[in-house]
Each structure stands twice: as C-alpha cells, then as structure tokens.
C-alpha cells in the first residue's frame, strides 16, 4: 500500500454521522469518514451493505437524511437543528455534483453521441465552455485514458473497457475534486478489467483523489491507501496497513475477506 502524509491537511471529503433512509429502512447508519486529497480509497463489503449508497451520497445523487457531507468547500448539512431548506440543499447538491466525477457500473456513455461529444457535453452545457476549448480538453482527457484514436466512434462500436475509460474521461473533463467509481469493472469481461484499473492507477499517481466501490481485492490491496469495509450500513473496519488486510480484527471482515480471497471474483458478483 502507498502512504500519504496527511499531517497539516484538512480532509477534502468529510462525512459526519451520515444516515440515509430508503422507505424508513436505514441503509446508512451514522457513518463518519474523512478522505484526504490524493487518497485512493476502496470500499468493500457484501452486496446490500450500503457501499454504493455511500458513494451516491458523497456526490449527492442521493440526499442524506441526517449528518453532513462536505466536499471541498461545499457542505450539505442535514444535522438536527440546522435550518437549511430542502431547495437550498438541492441547489448545493447541484453545485457539488459539478465538482465530483462519477463512473457507474452500467455503461452509460450517451449512445446518441460520439466519444468526443460525450466528453465535451458537460463542459459546454454545464460550465458554458467554448466548444473549441472543450474539444481540446476532451481530447487531452481521451489521450490520458488511451481513447484519442477512437474519439469519433459511437458507443456501440466500443468494448466495455473502452466505454468505461470513456466515462472516466467524461468525468475528468469537468475537472473534479474527486472521482467516484461504483463497481466500474463488475460488468466487464475479465480481460478488459486491467485497462480500466491501470487508468485509475495513473490518476492516483497524478494525485487525483479517488474512491472506488469494488470487488477487485487485489487492486484494492495494491493500489489503495486504505480499504473501508462496510456491512449492514456501517463501517466495520478501516484497513490501512498491509498486515491488517491479512489479519483484520473484526470477525465479519475476516469472513468476507476469506471468502473473497478463496473464491473468484465472479462468485462474489453472483452471490
């Protein structure tokens, strides 16, 4: 695992006592977590543990029901006693989403546009950028993810790995403070996983803050600064050192890691 020195920095992302309800069921229970600039954090856990929801709360695709989420200088505070109206929260959420990049498990490049147009769209529409400048930036980002030569293709002419790399470039074009990945490789054929992960490693080397919900344990172990293990809407354990991954304290973590190490990725996906 890589190490980052956090002394003297304040956290880029701070979750404090975050709760989230779906139909009165608490899917996130009092979650607190700080993530510093340049960190690469993996979130693991059995399916249904709330890890995707946590990610979606960080970029305000889901508005939290309690606690607070801070990304850079934008605060979504829903603690009791705070007097912020819901419409104000939504306004802030909209601003927040512009500074957070996200890549989903499902391939959702816009099929009616070319790869280049996909990457250019948000800068032009959301940020009001000149098309020429947006194109330049888009091509730079596509170059970074190795898709420059496919810039004029439509999504139906791309492999899954290429689509996910395109989605990363599309998010990067908005110059986000942080990149979120929700199981970005789970829908990929095994031979295509590597190309997506290597893009994330490169971004990490450049100092991009990244949070990834994943089942790729090897990647999580090798590339992450630390691994967050979640179960039943709670953070069970934060595994920050290599020996901790091999010898987790919590029994639930032990069981999950044992399973994930002994069986293949496919079985976890299916189970």
């Amino acid at each position: 695992m890589q190490k980052h020195d956090h002394s003297g920095h304040s956290a880029l992302i701070r979750l404090e006592g975050v709760t989230k309800l779906f139909d009165n069921t608490e899917v996130l229970k009092n979650i607190s977590l700080s993530i510093f600039e340049g960190d690469l954090v993996s979130i693991i856990g059995p399916s249904g543990c709330g890890k995707s929801t946590l990610l979606r709360c960080i970029n305000a695709l889901e508005i939290i029901d309690g606690g607070s989420v801070t990304v850079a200088d934008i605060v979504l505070d829903r603690r009791e006693g705070t007097n912020v109206s819901y419409s104000q929260i939504e306004k802030r959420a909209h601003r927040l989403r512009q500074s957070v990049g996200m890549v989903f498990q499902t391939f959702n490049l816009f099929p009616h546009k070319t790869v280049l147009e996909n990457v250019m769209l948000a800068p032009v529409v959301v940020q009001g950028m000149e098309k020429d400048i947006a194109r330049e930036i888009a091509l730079r980002q596509l170059d970074k993810v190795g898709l420059k030569n496919l810039a004029d293709r439509r999504t139906d002419q791309l492999s899954g790995g290429q689509i996910q790399r395109g989605a990363i470039a599309r998010a990067l074009a908005m110059s986000p403070n942080v990149m979120l990945y929700d199981e970005p490789t789970s829908a990929l054929d095994p031979e295509l996983v590597g190309e997506v992960l290597s893009v994330m490693r490169e971004l990490n080397a450049e100092g991009m803050t990244q949070i990834i919900v994943t089942h790729e344990m090897q990647f999580a172990k090798d590339a992450s600064d630390y691994i967050v293990f979640m179960d039943k809407g709670e953070i069970v354990e934060i595994l920050a050192e290599e020996f901790m991954v091999e010898h987790p304290k919590d029994e639930r973590t032990q069981r999950f890691l044992k399973r994930i190490m002994s069986v293949g990725r496919e079985d976890i996906n299916n189970g």
Partner: peptide, 9 residues
C-alpha cells in the same frame, strides 16, 4: 443519472 452526476440540471 449519468447526466445528473455530470452536474446537469
């Protein structure tokens, strides 16, 4: 969702 995540209204 993808559009929303990109900051579109």
């Amino acid at each position: 969702e993808a559009a929303k995540a990109l900051g579109m209204t």
